[in-house]
Every structure is written in C-alpha cells, then in structure tokens.
Amino acid sequence: DRHTIHIGDITIHLEGFSEEELKLAEELIKRGIHLEEVKRILEELYR
C-alpha cells in the first residue's frame, strides 16, 4: 500500500505504514526531523 504525506509543496511517499504511523511521521517531519530519522523511529516503534 502507498501513502502520501503533503507538507507545503513537498510530497513524501511512504509505503507499508498504517494511518497512525503516517500521522506520527508527518508530525515529526513538520517538527524538522530528517526523513531518515523518521523512518528509523517508525521502524523501532512499530516493527
């Protein structure tokens, strides 16, 4: 499954994450956390 996060003019595609995980990812990215770090956090929390 493919999910999309929109932040301003930026569109990020993250596959294989639930709606809850994507909301967390979006919040972290909006707070300035680097995408690679966001992915690592999600994997630690949900895998």
Rank of each mutant, 00 (worst) to 15 (best):
K39W: 15
A25C: 03
T4R: 00
K39R: 06
L22H: 09
E44M: 02
H3D: 13
D1K: 01
E26L: 11
L35T: 05
I5R: 00
K23M: 13
F17Y: 14
G16L: 12
A25R: 01
S18V: 05
S18H: 08
F17H: 04
L35A: 09
D1E: 03
I41G: 01
K39G: 04
G32K: 00
L14C: 13
L22P: 00
R31E: 10
E43A: 04
H13L: 10
K30E: 06
G32Y: 12
L24K: 04
L14S: 03
L45Y: 08
R40Q: 09
G16E: 07
T4V: 10
R31M: 11
E15R: 03
T4I: 07
S18A: 09
H3N: 13
T11W: 10
E43V: 04
H3E: 12
E21D: 06
I12F: 08
E44T: 01
G16S: 06
L22Y: 13
I29E: 01
E44I: 07
H34W: 08
R31N: 14
H13W: 11
E15W: 15
I12D: 04
Y46P: 01
H6N: 12
T4S: 09
I33L: 13
E20L: 08
E27V: 10
L14D: 02
L45I: 15
E19Y: 10
L22T: 05
I7W: 14
H34I: 05
R40T: 03
T4Y: 05
E19T: 10
I29N: 01
E43N: 04
E21W: 15
R47D: 13
T11P: 05
E44K: 02
K23D: 05
R2G: 14
L45H: 02
K39V: 15
E20I: 06
E21M: 14
L28S: 00
R47S: 15
F17K: 02
I5H: 04
R2K: 15
L22G: 06
E21A: 15
L14P: 01
D1S: 01
E37G: 03
R2P: 15
E36V: 06
E26W: 14
R47Y: 10
H6V: 15
R2N: 15
I33H: 07
E44P: 00
R2S: 14
T11R: 05
E15A: 11
E26Q: 10
E37R: 04
Y46L: 15
H6C: 12
H6W: 09
Y46H: 12
H3R: 00
I29V: 09
L28Y: 05
I29R: 01
L28T: 01
E37K: 05
F17T: 05
G32E: 03
T11H: 11
G32H: 04
L45K: 00
E26G: 08
H34S: 12
G32F: 15
K30D: 05
E43R: 01
E27H: 06
E26C: 06
E43S: 02
E36Y: 07
H6D: 12
L22C: 06
G8M: 09
R31S: 12
R47M: 15
I5G: 04
R31D: 08
K23G: 06
L45A: 08
L14F: 13
T11L: 09
I41M: 11
E27C: 03
H34D: 14
E21Y: 15
K39F: 14
V38M: 04
F17V: 04
D9R: 01
L45Q: 02
L42Y: 00
K30M: 13
L28E: 00
E26V: 14
L14R: 01
L24P: 00
L35Q: 04
E43G: 02
I10G: 07
G16F: 13
I10C: 07
F17S: 04
E21F: 15
H13S: 12
L14I: 09
L28H: 01
L22K: 11
L42I: 15
E43L: 07
E27T: 11
E43I: 11
G8T: 07
I41D: 01
T11E: 12
E21I: 14
V38D: 00
L22M: 10
S18E: 08
A25T: 04
D9S: 12
G8I: 09
G16Y: 08
L22A: 09
I10V: 13
L28C: 02
L35E: 06
L14H: 03
I5T: 04
I7T: 08
F17P: 03
E43F: 08
V38F: 04
D1T: 02
E36H: 07
I12S: 07
I41W: 14
D1R: 01
I29A: 03
E44H: 02
R40D: 02
H3P: 13
I5F: 02
E20D: 11
L35R: 02
H13D: 12
E15V: 13
E43H: 05
H34L: 13
E44Q: 03
T11D: 07
H6R: 03
E20R: 04
I5L: 03
K23V: 09
D9C: 04
R2D: 12
L42A: 00
T11M: 13
E36K: 04
L14M: 10
R40E: 05
I29C: 12
G32D: 03
K39M: 15
R40V: 05
E36L: 08
K39S: 03
E15I: 15
L24E: 04
S18I: 05
K23C: 01
L45C: 07
E20T: 09
L24Q: 05
R47N: 15
L45R: 01
G8D: 12
H13F: 13
H3M: 04
R31W: 15
A25V: 13
L28F: 06
H13T: 12
E36S: 10
I12L: 12
T4D: 11
E21Q: 06
L24A: 05
I7L: 10
E36I: 09
H13G: 05
R40C: 01
E21G: 12
R47F: 15
K39L: 15
I29G: 01
I10F: 13
I29L: 14
I10N: 08
E19G: 07
L28W: 07
I29F: 10
I12N: 05
I5Q: 03
T4F: 07
L35N: 03
T4A: 05
A25F: 14
I12V: 11
E26H: 07
R40K: 11
L14Q: 02
E21L: 14
R2C: 11
A25N: 00
L14K: 01
K39D: 02
I33W: 10
D9Q: 08
R2A: 14
K39T: 06
D9P: 07
H3L: 14
D1L: 02
L24S: 05
K30G: 11
K23N: 06
E27F: 09
I33Q: 03
R31T: 13
A25P: 00
V38N: 00
E44A: 07
L22S: 05
H34E: 10
E27R: 08
K23T: 09
G32A: 07
G8P: 05
D1N: 08
E21R: 02
F17D: 03
K30V: 12
E36W: 05
G8F: 09
E21N: 06
L24M: 15
E20Q: 11
T11S: 14
I12H: 04
H13C: 02
S18C: 09
I10P: 03
G8H: 08
E19D: 13
T4E: 14
L45V: 07
L24C: 04
E20W: 03
E27L: 10
K39H: 07
K30F: 14
F17C: 08
V38R: 00
I33V: 12
S18N: 13
E26F: 13
E37M: 08
L24H: 14
A25E: 01
Y46K: 11
E19S: 12
G32L: 07
K23Y: 07
D1H: 06
L42V: 09
R47G: 15
H34Y: 05
G16M: 09
D9H: 14
E21K: 01
K30Y: 14
G16N: 10
I5V: 04
Y46Q: 13
E37T: 08
I12Y: 12
A25Y: 04
L28P: 00
L42W: 01
L42D: 00
E19Q: 13
I12Q: 06
E20Y: 08
H6P: 03
G32V: 07
H13I: 14
E36C: 05
V38K: 00
R47V: 15
K39E: 06
L45E: 08
E27I: 11
R47C: 15
K23S: 08
I41S: 01
T11Q: 12
R31A: 14
R2Y: 14
L24D: 02
L28M: 12
L28R: 00
S18W: 08
L35Y: 08
I10S: 08
L28D: 00
L45D: 02
H34T: 15
I7Y: 12
L22E: 05
H6S: 08
E27G: 06
D9Y: 10
K23R: 14
I7V: 11
L24V: 15
T4C: 14
T11V: 07
I41R: 03
L45T: 07
D9K: 03
T11Y: 10
G8C: 11
R2M: 15
E37Y: 05
E19C: 12
H3V: 15
E37S: 03
H6F: 06
T4Q: 14
R47A: 15
G16P: 02
V38A: 02
D1P: 01
G16I: 15
K23Q: 12
L42H: 00
G32Q: 02
L42Q: 00
E27Q: 09
S18L: 13
I41L: 10
D9F: 10
G32M: 07
E21P: 09
K30T: 12
L24W: 09
I10K: 08
I5Y: 02
E36M: 06
L42E: 00
D1A: 00
I41E: 03
D9N: 13
E36F: 05
L35C: 03
Y46G: 03
R2V: 15
E20F: 06
E43C: 07
L14V: 07
L28Q: 01
I33R: 03
I33K: 09
E36A: 08
E15Q: 10
S18D: 07
R40H: 10
E44R: 01
L35M: 11
E27N: 09
V38L: 09
K30L: 13
K30H: 09
L35D: 03
